[in-house]
């Protein structure tokens, strides 16, 4: 399959700029990565409301929290590694516990950061953010969904974590797509197995469904961009309708989206589940596609896991 590729990050940059025009309360903070995170457009248009705090992520989260107490809608951006790793306690104590209106939009998440290697490849961010009370966690699937997510969260009070990647990502949606918090999107119906995917794994799930069809396996594909709150009804329905679940994420398999799905299944509707994701290891340097192959995130891996999961059905 050939996909139109479009980077998610400009979707963020453009939406943030639009929000700046629409709402005077929107402010933006960055820690010396305003170009890479695409916040620079906002900074150029609204210099008074843009604060580049330098390489000081902990301070950025704190200042964000302080601004939020004064009624601002605060966007804070840096790489996922430094946002959630370096400033974890600041997010927990100063943003989530007091339930302040800070939107942490982190870029360069996942193994596809590529050449920078393990120090910059963040596979644990969803785990870290998901376990914090009050935190809503979202991983958009493409450029258009990113835009919709950013507009939606600006209008929804409370702390948010949004995860974006570095690479160009296949386009799944168009301008009309409307993201809803806590609602999964069923992209393709099917009866034998369901692949629940997020981020750049969504296009791979759609491709895997085509391959599986050739082998007479009918596959449902769900985009689970709202990781928390998670759409329990869609998961339970998929379990009941198809009896087998495969999850696909560019994230550590521990406590990521696949685990969130497993929690729902365990509580409500246990069926065989397999997880496709990064094992609990550090990454390494390489080209994005090479790394996807090396760490088991390609279409073939999904197909194999789907067949295995179907075979486990009683």
């Amino acid at each position: 399959m050939t996909w139109e590729l479009k980077n998610m990050r400009p979707g963020y940059g453009e939406a943030l700029k639009e929000l700046g025009k629409r709402y005077s309360q929107v402010v933006a903070l960055n820690a010396d990565l305003s170009g890479s995170t695409q916040m620079a457009q906002f900074g150029n248009d609204f210099p008074e409301r843009f604060f580049n705090v330098g390489i000081a992520e902990q301070n950025m989260m704190g200042i964000s929290a302080g601004l939020a107490t004064t009624g601002k809608i605060v966007f804070a951006s840096t790489f996922a590694m430094f946002a959630t790793g370096r400033a974890y306690d600041q997010i927990r104590q100063s943003i989530a516990y007091p339930k302040l209106n800070v939107k942490i939009v982190a870029t360069h998440a996942g193994i596809t950061v590529g050449g920078d290697g393990a120090s910059h490849q963040m596979h644990e961010d969803l785990a870290l953010m998901r376990v914090i009370p009050h935190m809503t966690v979202i991983a958009p699937a493409d450029y258009y969904e990113t835009k919709s997510v950013i507009m939606k969260i600006a209008e929804t009070p409370g702390p948010f974590y949004v995860r974006l990647g570095r690479t160009d990502t296949p386009v799944i949606y168009d301008e009309d797509h409307e993201f809803k918090i806590g609602v999964a999107d069923t992209l393709k119906d099917g009866d034998d197995v369901t692949i629940i995917a997020m981020g750049l794994m969504v296009s791979k799930a759609l491709e895997a469904a085509k391959v599986l069809k050739r082998e007479d396996i009918s596959t449902r594909v769900i985009n689970m961009s709202s990781i928390k709150p998670i759409d329990k009804n869609s998961i339970i329905k998929a379990a009941r309708d198809t009896g087998a679940i495969v999850t696909a994420e560019e994230h550590n398999m521990i406590v990521g989206m696949g685990s969130a799905v497993a929690e729902v299944l365990a509580d409500s509707s246990p069926v065989p589940q397999s997880r496709v994701g990064i094992p609990n290891v550090f990454g390494e340097s390489g080209e994005s596609e090479e790394l996807m192959e090396a760490y088991g995130l390609k279409v073939d891996h999904l197909v194999e896991k789907a067949k295995y999961t179907v075979s486990m059905k009683r």
Binding site: E48, G62, A65, G66, T69, T70, D89, S94, P98
Partner: peptide
């Protein structure tokens, strides 16, 4: 109480955010 605190070292950043909020408004 204007801010939740307890984990040390974080309040001064919060206070800067509040002070910048005053300036913007």
């Amino acid at each position: 109480v204007d801010m939740s605190t307890g984990s040390l070292g974080q309040g001064l950043s919060i206070a800067i955010g509040m002070a910048l909020g005053a300036r913007l408004d």
